[in-house]
Write a protein that binds this DNA or RNA. Structure first.
Length: 389
DNA sequence: AATACGGGGTC
DNA sequence: GACCCAGTATT
């Protein structure tokens, strides 16, 4: 049968290629299921080069299941600072605590058990079971969907969940007897280094002779994927509040709520501005490339935003912050939201000795205390620029 | 099935 | 600027 034959060809060629060409990655130097697990969670939607330094630091701080289970959550979040998708860190620690308490510290090797852990979905379950335990489970990520879509000319939309399920069945059939660990990594390695999203390197591909997409000249068209919605813009006013008296040299920061975007991370106090014509115009003028601090129209817009900043912060947090001047703008794009920010230098209204009481989630932060607070990159950059100047 | 959830690299 | 990345949870 032709298809059977192609599958056989694909598996044996790919496996041999991988054994001869695999990259030397930190998590490939270990078969410790905990190490593999940590790497797989970090690698979710994140590039290998980005992960490597985090992986080293994380395992240095939390070398074992027990160490991570017993660590304070804020230490874990701090170790994850800058990596993004911070629920991964919280879920990983919750799952590791479960492994510590319910599985005697041994990462479970059963599909049901490991899938029940927080933050462990179909991909991560398959990756840990195959890579660490050599179990013949598929581990289908974006690479695998692309690589198999091309070789077998699958025209399903890889953005649809049903497509992943279909490709999982195929990926499982392809696993050579006793070679799950290397074969699954080979699939991903091919996608990461040869069968890349754009301009794949077909001439060096170990399976190009029988690659359907290549033979039809369609390697650039596959896989099919529907486009994501663009992030929605949000105008925000940020308060950079300098301390005085005993708080001189410090900045006012606050911790975010336990749920939602950037959960439990620290940030500069800020408010969302009404999506008024003014905000849109300000964003537009920035996009056009011109600074907007000088123009009369911009000055009026700043006055309105400063008033909104003070009023909204009083209403939401009960802090009375008095904006003094526009400092800078800043833009940050998440997957689904774009923040168009204006940063204002402020002072805290209250006793001149700076003894005013703060809400429980507020702190005065000295630059030397940064290692105790986890900030997302969007605020890390603003803080760094401020302290540098 | 659609959306929330970060941040950065690349062509 | 567009696309994508070793995805998962929630709705």
């Amino acid at each position: 049968m032709e298809l059977q034959d192609r599958k056989q060809f694909y598996s044996s060629r790919l496996l041999a290629w991988y054994k001869a060409n695999k990259r030397d990655l930190p998590w490939r130097r270990s078969r410790n299921p905990y190490h593999i697990w940590v790497s797989e969670v970090m690698l979710q939607q994140t590039r290998v080069e980005t992960v490597i330094p985090y992986f080293h630091r994380f395992l240095e701080k939390f070398p074992t299941v027990e160490a991570l289970a017993e660590a304070p959550e804020e230490h874990v979040l701090k170790a994850w600072e800058g990596l993004g998708y911070y629920s991964r860190a919280r879920n990983l620690q919750a799952a590791v605590r479960e492994v510590h308490e319910q599985y005697g510290g041994i990462v479970p090797s059963g599909k049901e058990d490991i899938t029940s852990l927080k933050g462990v979905g179909p991909y991560t379950a398959g990756a840990v079971l195959s890579i660490a335990y050599n179990k013949p489970e598929p581990a289908v990520d974006g690479n695998v969907m692309r690589v198999l879509s091309r070789f077998f000319v699958l025209e399903d939309d890889i953005a649809k969940p049903s497509t992943r399920v279909k490709i999982e069945r195929l990926a499982q059939e392809l696993i050579p007897e006793g070679e799950a660990s290397d074969f699954n990594q080979a699939l991903m390695e091919l996608g990461a280094t040869v069968c890349t999203p754009r301009s794949p390197h077909c001439l060096t591909c170990p399976v190009m002779e029988r690659c359907g997409a290549r033979l039809e000249g369609r390697e650039a068209e596959l896989p099919l994927k529907t486009k994501a919605k663009p992030p929605r813009p949000e105008a925000r006013a940020v308060a950079l509040v300098e301390g005085s008296g005993p708080h001189a040299g410090k900045l006012l920061v606050r911790q975010r709520p336990t749920d939602g975007l950037l959960a439990r991370m620290w940030e500069l106090p800020h408010v969302a501005l009404a999506p008024a014509p003014g905000a849109g115009a300000a964003a537009k003028s920035r996009a056009a490339g011109g600074g907007n601090a000088g123009s009369p129209a911009a000055a009026g817009a700043h006055a309105a935003r400063m008033a909104a900043l003070r009023a909204e912060l009083a209403a939401s947090d009960g802090v009375d912050v008095v904006p003094a001047e526009w400092l800078r703008d800043a833009e940050h794009t998440f997957s689904h939201i774009r923040w168009d920010m204006d940063v204002y230098r402020c002072r805290l209204n209250g006793p001149s000795d700076g003894s005013a009481a703060l809400p429980p989630n507020y702190r005065w932060l000295h630059p030397d205390e940064m290692e105790q607070y986890a900030f997302p990159n969007v605020f890390l950059r603003i803080l760094a620029d401020w302290w540098e100047a």
